[in-house]
Every structure is written in C-alpha cells, then in structure tokens.
C-alpha cells in the first residue's frame, strides 16, 4: 500500500495528465476518490471548484484508504484535509502532517480543462 510514495511529483511538468472525471462528478467544496492504474487518489476542490488539489487516498497513520472522505479546510493559508479516523491533518500543497509527527503524504498536480479534471502523474 505504500507504493504511492514513489509518485512524489516535483515542480516538473508531469509526464501523464490523467483525465479523471467531469467537474460535475465531484462534490463542491469537498473530496472524492479517483482510481488510476492500481492507485487510489483523493481529489479535492475549494472555492466552489475554482481551486483543486490531489493526494494519496491512504492515511499513513493507520494505513486506511480514507482521505478522500475527510473534511477539507485551511490552517492559515495552507489548504488541508483531516483524516476521518483520528483527525490527523495534512497540507494539500506539501503533504506534510500538520498536527503530528507522521510521514508526509504524496500530492499530485491537478488541472481543469473543458469541464474535465486532470491529475498529473510521473508515469
């Protein structure tokens, strides 16, 4: 389940832009889960679909596929998601855990084009 770590994407342009689903398929100001190859990716939007983030669906605290069902929010200017199980919160920009010393999660770039949401992967 930890294989997601290898998908850490730097600022470089991703090799693959995966066309995930229509904007309308995602809940506004919330999250949903996208399947890409064998992976589960949590995708969130803020400001009624104007701001998008993606990260691994796996919460590293108890290894549960759950983050897409977490509550989103902000800490200062940092967008974040809180795991439903034990409220561990992670930055959706850096992936860093904001309220515990847990390893960071992987994040992925997101773009919106012609009503569709795309997630960037390195392979």
């Amino acid at each position: 389940m930890n294989s997601l770590k290898s998908h850490q994407v730097a600022e470089t342009e991703p090799k693959v832009w995966y066309k995930a689903a229509k904007i309308h398929d995602f809940p506004m100001d919330g999250g949903a889960c996208v399947k890409y190859k064998g992976l589960q990716i949590a995708v969130f939007n803020f400001n009624t679909g104007k701001e998008w983030y993606a990260c691994q669906n796996l919460c590293p605290h108890k290894m549960q596929m759950i983050l897409s069902r977490g509550l989103t929010g902000s800490q200062g200017d940092e967008p974040k998601v809180a795991c439903p199980y034990h409220k561990k919160t992670f930055s959706l920009k850096s992936g860093v855990c904001l309220n515990d010393e847990i390893e960071a999660i992987s994040t992925f770039p997101v773009k919106v084009d012609d009503d569709y949401v795309y997630i960037g992967f390195s392979q």
Partner: peptide
Amino acid sequence: QELVHAHGTGHGCEICK
C-alpha cells in the same frame, strides 16, 4: 459557505464545519 464568507475567514476546518 454563506457563514464563512459573511462572518469568518479561510476555508474552515474539521472543527467549524
């Protein structure tokens, strides 16, 4: 959304939502 725009700041969180 109505509440946070009128009376709060940021995007809310797992407490206030």
